[in-house]
């Protein structure tokens, strides 16, 4: 059994060998980004502790007769690292780098959770019960290029390819809370996000989306349907994706 097992495992491992997805330079770049994020968080933590110390000291000594409270402390550094991607739900777009991709998220009754989330896992394909993606009945749906997201409070959702409604991304919401993209776009996002990356999901109403100029009537209710500037610029797709 031992020899057979060794042989079997070796054959299995050989069959499972795969080339790197990204070059070594990209691996080093990601390591550098994380190091800078950690340094930023640590520095912000030190500043916060120092600020707390000063505040406590002032509080203990009490304000002088001519002292006024300082204006709102807008200069406090954020302890958060920059997100790798941001989803603006009201506009139905996901911004990653210089690309703006169309999405379709949760319907009114099954809203997509918002907040700062971390990529916890990635799956090339995931089978979901139809009900779990917003279908009625006993269908089973395969969602390709899944990026699972979790917030610190335990809230979860995921990004994935919307195979059954290619018109939805950018136009209307159709899921029961997850964030659907065109299949090509979902694959592109899947290849760029790694476990540990931060994705921010925002309502996005009234917030200008980086990388594009919002049209005058873009109040969020109409989404990106009439917005020709929302495109998948790198591989030339319109962001609505295919149905593969």
């Amino acid at each position: 059994m031992s020899d057979d097992l060794t042989t079997g495992l070796r054959e299995l491992a050989e069959s499972g060998q795969m080339p790197p997805r990204v070059p070594g330079a990209e691996v080093r770049r990601r390591a550098g980004v994380r190091r800078r994020r950690r340094a930023a968080v640590a520095a912000a933590g030190v500043s916060a502790v120092a600020a707390l110390g000063v505040a406590l000291l002032l509080n203990l000594t009490g304000p002088g007769p001519h002292e006024r409270p300082s204006p709102a402390s807008t200069g406090t550094p954020s302890t958060h690292a920059a997100p790798s991607a941001t989803v603006y739900l009201a506009r139905r777009v996901l911004v990653i780098g210089d690309r703006v991709l169309r999405v379709s998220a949760g319907t009114f009754d099954t809203r997509t959770p918002t907040g700062r989330m971390t990529v916890t896992a990635r799956r090339e394909i995931m089978t979901q019960p139809g009900k779990a993606v917003g279908f009625k009945g006993s269908y089973s749906v395969k969602v390709p290029w899944v990026v699972e997201l979790s917030a610190d409070d335990g809230t979860s959702t995921f990004l994935g390819g919307l195979t059954y409604d290619s018109k939805a991304p950018g136009n209307y919401d159709t899921t029961n809370g997850w964030i659907g993209l065109g299949v090509e776009d979902a694959k592109w996002v899947y290849e760029r996000l790694s476990v540990g990356d931060v994705v921010v999901v925002e309502d996005g109403r009234g917030t200008p989306v980086p990388g594009r100029t919002p049209p005058p009537d873009d109040g969020g209710s109409g989404g990106a349907a009439g917005n020709p500037s929302v495109v998948s610029s790198r591989h030339g797709s319109t962001g609505t994706g295919g149905s593969g």
Binding site: L12, A13, S15, G16, P19, P20, G24
Partner: peptide, 21 residues
């Protein structure tokens, strides 16, 4: 950096095979 990249390129397939098992 060059040594790391070479090590990565050489070891990655072997390690993915082992992790696949």
């Amino acid at each position: 950096e060059e040594e790391f990249d070479a090590f990565y390129a050489a070891a990655f397939p072997r390690l993915t095979g082992q992790l696949y098992a």
